[in-house]
Amino acid sequence: MIHTLNIKTAGIPLKQAEKALIMIHGRGGSAQDILSLSQHLKVKDYALLAPQALNHTWYPLSFMAPVDQNEPWLSSALEMVDETVKAVLDAGIRPENIYFFGFSQGACLTLEFLARNAQRFGGATAIIGGVIGDKVNRENYKGDFAGTPVFLGTSNPDFHVPVERVYATANIFREMNAEVTEKVYANFGHSINQEEMELANSIIFK
């Protein structure tokens, strides 16, 4: 299962936009699903881009599985995010005006990509996700977020994402100079709530 670049778009046309939001869907979801969430975000003047995973899944196993067991799908998925970022950069939008939003498997993919490619971005929202692997490989994560705001929202417990991995991810991002806000909801379930969207708007999409 190797992904092919298939980017769905909404919002302002990329060539006319000054800001872009890259949205990464979860397992079983779709680019159109995640794009529909943008109606709850303050992104009316953004270009919106959402790559589509082959068969609606970025990688086959849990994000907590050994990394090599999710290959070559994981590397292909990371490449799809990278290609989406390059499309935005090629349109003349600067990195500090590129934003990210990911949910569940898409949140994990977003966070893994950002940790491997840290620089000053506009901001990132990751709902129920953490960096990928059975163990955290800190050597993979290099760069400096230079104050990039990052919002992590999750439920505790969550069937797919242990809250400990969310906290570990927050700590890594802080070490790399991101401005991290985390919010843990007790027994909320594996979904996105209205307060998380409001927090994303107040922290990221100001």
Rank of each mutant, 00 (worst) to 15 (best):
M1Y: 09
N140H: 11
T84S: 06
T148N: 13
T4F: 07
G143M: 13
G133Q: 01
E18V: 12
Q16K: 15
F100R: 03
F113G: 01
L109P: 03
E195P: 06
F103S: 03
Q69N: 09
Y46Q: 06
L199W: 10
L41G: 02
A31D: 11
L54A: 09
A65W: 01
L14Q: 08
G106W: 07
V85N: 08
E175K: 13
M64Q: 15
L48K: 00
D82T: 14
V131R: 05
V131Y: 05
F113N: 01
F173N: 02
K15D: 15
P60F: 00
L74V: 00
V136N: 02
V136M: 13
K183L: 14
E196G: 08
A186P: 14
G26Q: 03
T110K: 03
Q119L: 12
C108Q: 04
Q105Y: 11
I203E: 10
S62A: 13
L54P: 02
I22W: 08
N193P: 05
F100W: 14
I127W: 09
A20G: 12
T148V: 12
A91Y: 10
A118R: 06
K44V: 08
G102W: 08
C108I: 04
P162Y: 03
F173D: 06
G106V: 03
Q105G: 09
P60S: 00
Q105V: 05
K44F: 00
N70H: 00
D158N: 09
N140I: 05
G122P: 07
E71S: 00
R174K: 15
Q16H: 14
G130P: 07
L74K: 00
I2S: 10
D45L: 06
F188N: 11
R138L: 14
F103M: 13
H3C: 03
W73D: 15
S62F: 07
S104Y: 03
K19P: 04
S62P: 11
F101R: 01
Y141S: 02
